[in-house]
Design a binder for these strands. Structure first.
Length: 468
RNA sequence: GGCGGCAUAGCCAAGUGGCUAAGGCAGCGGUCUGCAAAACCGCUAUUCGCCGGUUCGACUCCGGCUGCCGCCUCCA
């Protein structure tokens, strides 16, 4: 049984979906105005891990992630590039999906775009106006916070109308609100901006409304879970609750789950500090995408994660050891006799599941996997693992990887390349030289290959090679 | 100013009122090897930021202090 920390109650709670076996989950997705950065990706990866765990636990998961393709930043970006909003956002939407695939993040059930759900949003806004929760002013529509008693129940923040900073905000805002705390549901169009027709004239949706409209459209009035990074707790999610519950009259979200931010080299990531990384930046530096996935999983989701270059190297080394272990496991001969490892694997599985069920403790789950490696390695080195035992461990790895997504790898010698035959020939020539005692020639070939990035390893079953 | 979080070995990082404080990386020693590489083995926190308190017993609970961070405005 999964226990999850619920922001709403500030404590861990047992999770049970409203409908047995079906989880309705909504995660705040990207605003497609730029490449996703690793902080965004950590959040999306968290969502992936949670969904994978729910699925592995036997649930059907209907997870929806929105694509915000209309807002100030996308409009400005399209304007600057002189292309249509649609053309501009499509480009970054494509990059977003590419990054997900690179990091082995499984596709969500639905990825609705804001611009394709304007009608649903207008329906929500109109209803809110009819019921007295919202008001129109000069073509814009605002949510009236004073009409929703429970405003602030998620974040504990109730904006104070007398707060001096609020008055400053009023001046900056081009849209007149009756109360500085009210938030915009529908923005009156400005010249040159893309707009949609509405009962209040041409305009475009405010930021928060898309989540209410689209989650309701795909998942119904009450969601089992709603995810989003901590910075969204206020005001975004607070506003979502207000507008959704005022609209449906029912509880909007049962479990609010908020992963913490990522920092880089101990500091908040920001463009001005020059520590702002996209996935592409890292891949260009030659980083292994799975090492990036691994590093993003090393800290518990409710803790800030310190992303460092050194950490990336550590992750790669940890993975290489894991992959190498798996390779050696799969090389155990079919007729090998020895330990069946049933007890070891059972214990590892039990620890693995217990960790994940305890507020998705992924570091703990990975520790269970590595602890097994540590336990079995000596037996493997002594040739005391039976064929059954090896298969049992590999089955566990495959099972664990349904959630982790880091164990599956290309067998090192399988890495495809046009010159494989040539490499094989050299490896063979070196082996013959060694057998003939011509170590000078053997070492020469080894150095030659090393220069091409090919590493030779001599094993009991003969030489094997891999690309560095 | 208001609210909240975190401080565990050289680094990253789990965790618990009392069994030997997970796991990873790095380092050192060793095995293996023609030499390497890879792999394997062993060692590496008597101690969990500091000071008090509660308790038979706290790293884990409470209070204070120090430091770091986040939110309160767009932000994953």
């Amino acid at each position: 049984m999964l226990k999850l920390y619920n922001t709403k109650t500030r404590g861990k709670e047992e999770f049970e979906p409203l409908e047995n076996g079906v989880v309705r989950l909504y995660a705040c997705g990207p605003t497609v105005y730029d490449f996703p950065h690793i902080g965004n990706l950590r959040t999306f990866l968290f969502s992936d891990l949670l969904v994978r765990h729910l699925k592995r636990s036997g649930h059907e998961v209907r997870n929806v992630m929105n694509i915000t393709d209309v807002d100030d930043k996308t409009i400005r970006g399209a304007d600057e590039e002189g292309v249509s909003l649609r053309e501009y956002t499509q480009k970054y939407t494509d990059y977003f999906f590419e990054d997900l695939e690179t990091l082995r993040i499984e596709p969500a059930w639905k990825y609705p775009r804001a611009t394709e759900h304007i009608d649903e949003m207008l329906e929500v806004v109109e209803t809110l106006v009819e019921r007295g929760h919202a008001y129109e002013h000069e073509g814009s529509v605002y949510f009236d916070i004073s009409s929703f008693d429970e405003y602030g129940k998620l974040s504990g923040i109730v904006p104070d109308a007398t707060d001096s900073r609020e008055f400053g905000r009023l001046d900056d805002d081009e849209y007149e609100r009756e109360d500085a705390r009210d938030f915009v549901l529908w923005k009156a169009g400005k010249p040159g901006e893309p707009t949609w027709e509405s009962p209040w004239g041409p305009g475009r949706p405010g930021w928060h409304i898309e989540c209410t409209a689209m989650s309701t459209a795909y998942l119904g009035k009450t969601l089992d879970m709603h995810l989003g990074a901590v910075d969204l707790v206020f005001p975004h999610h607070e506003n979502e609750i207000a507008q959704s519950e005022a609209y449906t009259g029912e509880e909007f979200v049962r479990y609010w789950v908020h992963p913490e931010h990522l920092i880089v080299e101990g500091e908040k990531m920001s463009k001005s500090k020059g520590n702002f990384f996209t996935l592409r930046d890292l891949l260009d530096r030659g980083c292994d995408p799975i090492a990036i996935r691994h590093l993003l999983m090393t800290a518990h989701y409710r803790r800030q994660l310190n992303f460092t270059v050194e950490g990336l190297e550590q992750s790669l080394h940890a993975l290489e050891r894991l992959w190498d272990f798996a390779d050696r496991m799969s090389e155990v001969p079919a007729d090998a006799e020895g330990e069946d490892l049933a007890g070891e694997v059972e214990a590892a599985l039990s620890k693995f599941e217990a960790a994940l069920n305890d507020d998705l403790n992924v570091p703990g789950a990975m520790a269970a996997v590595f602890a097994l490696v540590r336990q079995v390695n000596p037996l493997l080195a002594e040739g005391r693992v039976s064929a059954d035992g090896a298969q049992r461990v590999l089955d566990f790895f495959a099972d664990a990887d349904r959630v982790l997504g880091i164990i599956e790898h290309q067998d090192r010698a399988d890495a495809a390349g046009a010159d494989d035959a040539e490499i094989e020939a050299l490896v063979q020539e070196r082996q013959e030289a060694r057998e003939a005692g011509d170590y000078a020639r053997a070492d020469e070939i080894r150095d030659e290959l090393l220069e091409q990035g090919i590493v030779i390893e001599d094993t009991a079953h003969g030489p094997r090679w891999r690309r560095e």
